[in-house]
Design a binder for these strands. Sequence first.
DNA 1: TGGGAAAATGACCAATCAGTCATTGTAGTG
DNA 2: CACTACAATGACTGATTGGTCATTTTCCCA
Lengths: 205, 205
Amino acid sequence: MTFRGRTKKDVVAEFRHAEILDAARKVFADKGFNEASVDEIAHTAGLAKGTLYLYYPSKRDLYWEALKSGLEALCTRLEGEVQAARDTETKIRTFMTTKLSYFEENRDFFKIYYAEFGHASVHPAYFHKDFQEYHVRQIHLVKSALQDGIRHGSVRDLPLEATAFAIVNLTRGIIAQRLLGWVSTRIEEDAAFMFDLTWKGIARR
Amino acid sequence: MTFRGRTKKDVVAEFRHAEILDAARKVFADKGFNEASVDEIAHTAGLAKGTLYLYYPSKRDLYWEALKSGLEALCTRLEGEVQAARDTETKIRTFMTTKLSYFEENRDFFKIYYAEFGHASVHPAYFHKDFQEYHVRQIHLVKSALQDGIRHGSVRDLPLEATAFAIVNLTRGIIAQRLLGWVSTRIEEDAAFMFDLTWKGIARR
DNA sequence: TGGGAAAATGACCAATCAGTCATTGTAGTG
DNA sequence: CACTACAATGACTGATTGGTCATTTTCCCA
């Protein structure tokens, strides 16, 4: 019996993959790559170590898949919501708030994601490159919004790349600060203020 | 024979400590904490492993000392130069440019420094707290400058903490981007633009 | 229900490496 | 020069852990 070409076996395998990624994300976020042991990830997923190796060929691969699946979901969501926004102001605001919401729903993922920035230089080249790609996608999204804004006159003439980077980076900062528990303000306040500051900085007057 | 109460032995010991920290910074920056072996650090410093343990009690301690000495120097320099600046505008600009210069002279240190942000949550509590202290010192410096600006009317009324954080974070972003080699623009351009954006965002009009 | 295939298991192996310490080298002193 | 106190060494050890694979369990179909 198959359903859309997928056998029951495929469904089970897919479920296992997702289960393992979830466990991996949890443990990697808690301990970091090196301190996390494959045994612990397996047990968190309710499996034996050997089983885990039937689904992922190495610890590194597992790590990268856990990171990548989160990045893919984040980027897709950002692209969807930002592109749906009407004007530049809303697009920029949406970028910030969407990312913050995603953070609140996926703290584990963000811990891994931001830890990776500090590490990218020690990882193998192929890894680094894929990682960078996701960064570029986000920058590109903001750049497009800014370009529209400049064309329509709501945004002053600015170097696109640098401005987009500043916006992505400010958002990053708010999240990183909260990950480290160095802040007690409400997240909406932070977001609102960050947007105000940004808009004052880039809007035409 | 002593000089200001320090024997020749003390001088040699101090020199060894500095030598080892330098080597440690180099290797940790290159490989990250876990991939760096104590053996490699010792050999980079031109010593045997056992000797290194005469000066630092553990790999972790060595790591923290390498990080801390750099942080101390950075903070001292920032405080000196920023407080010497006359008006708020110059203070903010000085904060940014001084940090960028320090980065260009101490790439190794910054690699460790920024890698640590992603890791702070997995390190022991005492470590985390000391690390945070240096962050607070920088935030405080910028906050004071902003407060002066508000008092004198050059800066609009803003939430100090959040604004200071945004400024520190923007600077961080410029540096991080360059560490990762994701950028080809001249650093002075980046700095000038970043300041322009910030000042437009915070100045009274 | 029985048999065969696929999935799951966890004891095991090999490699790595932080930290130790018995031994060797050296500098200062009388 | 001889002696001592301290600095330096690096072979060694114990602990950890990524990855393997022979064995056991589960599942499915005839």
